[in-house]
């Protein structure tokens, strides 16, 4: 299957037996996953398998209740940190449904975030001029329309613009761990290419990326090191990039059947 087994010992994220529920409904039922620095992992699964819940739990959404397990991020207890502490420590989630905030400009929003992160790392906060120069470079880098910068956060953006805005934010905030929650869904092929190109430009030896997706399509552009299949709140199968192609070919049913046959 071409699975690379070697442990590198530079663990960015380690999820151990994670259980979580929403409104009393059990969604995650024992997730185990290790992501090393420099790796791209794809987490695939059908609707309702728990993909987005996993992303939300990692980002710190309060309405998700962790009932068991542990998550280590860069050696720290991630679940003990508030959403903003996680972000300042380098965790980033690209939202499946980016939130509209009328009355707050994209630039102001990002400046508040970036400066909070810089302050956390003992760096000087950027003033308005420095920040503007910085974001303009980043906008160019990920092919973002500059006019979107002065507009209110996601307000009146098209679906594609919202997703590109997420990748743009990733470019500005330079996270160590990025979790992309269905960033590809709802995009036409041109928008998908631009988004994927942005992700590839940001991909490096110094960060890790988890691509949460329903479809294999984005993985043609963002080629993962590992692919995991999430079913019924558990990772039931892990493999290399070929696993994604198999899923594309045959759907999720064959995995389901195999899992059921074993249990």
């Amino acid at each position: 299957m071409g699975v690379r087994k070697e442990e590198k010992g530079n663990g960015m994220l380690e999820i151990i037996d994670l259980h979580a529920e929403v409104d009393g409904k059990k969604i995650l039922k024992g997730i185990n996953l290790k992501v090393n620095l420099g790796e791209v992992h794809a987490i695939m699964g059908p609707n309702g398998s728990g993909k987005s819940t996993l992303a939300q739990v990692l980002a710190g959404r309060e309405s998700y209740n962790v009932t068991n397990g542990q998550v280590l991020y860069d050696g720290q207890d991630l679940l003990d940190m508030s959403p903003d502490e996680r972000a300042r420590a380098g965790v980033f989630m690209a939202f499946q449904y980016p939130v509209e905030i009328p009355g707050v400009s994209n630039t102001y929003f990002l400046k508040a975030g970036l400066n909070a992160i810089r302050k956390h790392h003992g760096l000087e906060e950027l003033d308005a001029m420095e920040f503007l120069k910085f974001v303009k470079e980043k906008a160019k880098f990920v092919n973002m329309d500059e006019t979107l910068l002065s507009r209110p956060v996601n307000h009146g953006f098209s679906g594609g613009e919202k997703k590109r805005n997420e990748i743009y934010q990733m470019a500005v905030l330079e996270p160590k761990l990025a979790i992309l929650d269905e960033t590809d869904s709802g995009l036409d092929i041109d928008a998908l290419r631009i988004v994927a190109e942005g992700i590839n430009k940001l991909r490096s030896k110094n960060n890790s990326i988890i691509v949460v997706t329903h479809y294999q399509r984005i993985l043609n552009y963002v080629v993962p090191d590992y692919v995991h299949v999430l079913l019924g709140g558990r990772i039931v199968r892990s493999g290399g990039k070929d696993l994604a192609l198999q899923l594309e070919d045959k759907g999720y049913d064959w995995v389901k059947e195999e899992v059921e046959a074993v249990s």
């Binding site: 980002a59 508030s82 903003d84 980033f92 939130v99 905030i101 975030g113 992160i117 934010q169």
Partner: peptide, 11 residues
């Protein structure tokens, strides 16, 4: 919106 802002590092 609060969660979105916090997820970008804002206290």
């Amino acid at each position: 919106a609060l969660f979105y802002l916090r997820s970008r590092g804002v206290g």
